[in-house]
C-alpha cells in the first residue's frame, strides 16, 4: 500500500491527523476558521435578506419583477467569480469584496428559488384568502411567505453550498486570515498534509451546513406530509 502512493504527494492518514492536532493545538486552525466563518455568516445574512426582500417585491409587483428579476437573471447567467475584479475595484482589497462575493452568490440562489416559489403559490388559496377579507399584510405573512417557504429552503441549501465555494475564491484576494489563506500558504510550501486537513475541514463545514438546512426544513415544514422515502 505504502508503495502505491508516494508519501510526499499523498501523506498517510496518521500524518494528516497529527498535522490537524498540531494545527488545533496551536490555535492556528481555529483562528483562520473563525475568520472564514465570519465572512460566510455576514455574506449569508446580507444575501438572504436581500434575496427574500427582493423576491417578495419582484413576486408581488409588476415593477419589481421588471426591476429585480430581470437583473437577477443576468447576474445568474454570468459566473459569479467573474465579478471579482469589479468587486475589488469597487470595494478595495479588505473584507468588503470577500463578503460582497459571498453575498452575491447567496442572493442569487435565494432570489431564483424564492421568487419562483412565490409565483407558484396556489392561486386558489390566494383567492380564498381574499374572499375571507385577508388584507395585504396578512396575505404576505399568512399565505405567500409560508407558501413560498419550501422553495426558499431549497434556495437556502444551494446558498450554503454557494457561500463556501465563493469563500474559497474570495480568500484568494489578499486575505491575511482564513481557510483560503492557509490553503494558499500550504500550496506555496508544498504542505500536502495541511491541504488534506483543510479539505477535511471544508467537508465538515459542508456537512454541517446541510445539517442546518435539514433541521430548518423539518422544523419549519412540519405541516407538510410529504414523501420521505419508501
Amino acid at each position: 500500500m505504502a508503495q502505491l502512493l508516494d508519501p510526499r504527494t499523498t501523506p498517510g492518514p496518521m500524518t494528516v491527523l497529527n498535522t490537524a492536532i498540531t494545527m488545533l493545538g496551536s490555535g492556528e486552525l481555529q483562528g483562520h476558521l473563525w475568520a472564514s466563518l465570519q465572512r460566510v455568516l455576514q455574506g449569508l445574512a446580507i444575501g438572504v435578506s436581500l434575496g427574500v426582500v427582493g423576491a417578495l417585491v419582484a413576486g408581488l409587483a409588476r415593477w419589481g419583477e421588471n426591476l429585480i428579476d430581470a437583473n437577477m437573471e443576468i447576474l445568474h447567467a454570468v459566473p459569479n467569480f467573474a465579478f471579482l475584479p469589479v468587486l475589488i475595484a469597487w470595494f478595495g482589497i479588505g473584507e468588503e469584496p470577500k463578503v460582497a462575493l459571498i453575498t452575491l452568490s447567496v442572493w442569487i440562489a435565494i432570489h431564483i428559488n424564492t421568487y419562483s416559489a412565490i409565483r407558484n403559490v396556489d392561486a386558489s388559496l390566494v383567492e380564498a384568502a381574499r374572499t375571507f377579507g385577508v388584507g395585504r399584510r396578512e396575505l404576505i405573512t399568512a399565505v405567500i411567505l409560508p407558501g413560498a417557504l419550501p422553495g426558499f429552503l431549497v434556495g437556502l441549501r444551494l446558498a450554503l453550498t454557494a457561500a463556501w465555494l465563493a469563500l474559497i475564491f474570495a480568500e484568494t484576494i489578499n486575505a491575511p486570515t482564513g481557510l483560503g489563506r492557509m490553503m494558499s500558504d500550504a500550496r506555496e510550501y508544498f504542505r500536502i498534509d495541511v491541504i488534506f486537513v483543510l479539505l477535511g475541514v471544508y467537508a465538515l463545514l459542508g456537512l454541517a451546513s446541510l445539517a442546518v438546512a435539514r433541521f430548518l426544513e423539518s422544523w419549519l415544514l412540519s405541516w407538510r406530509r410529504s414523501f420521505d422515502g419508501a
Binding site: L125, G135, E138, W223
Partner: peptide, 20 residues
C-alpha cells in the same frame, strides 16, 4: 369551495379565523 382551500401551513383554528 369544492376543495377546502385551507392553508396547509396554518393550524386549523388559525385557518378558521383567517382574515379576522
Amino acid at each position: 369551495f369544492q376543495d377546502p382551500r385551507l392553508m396547509p401551513w396554518l393550524p386549523v383554528l388559525r385557518n378558521v379565523t383567517l382574515g379576522l
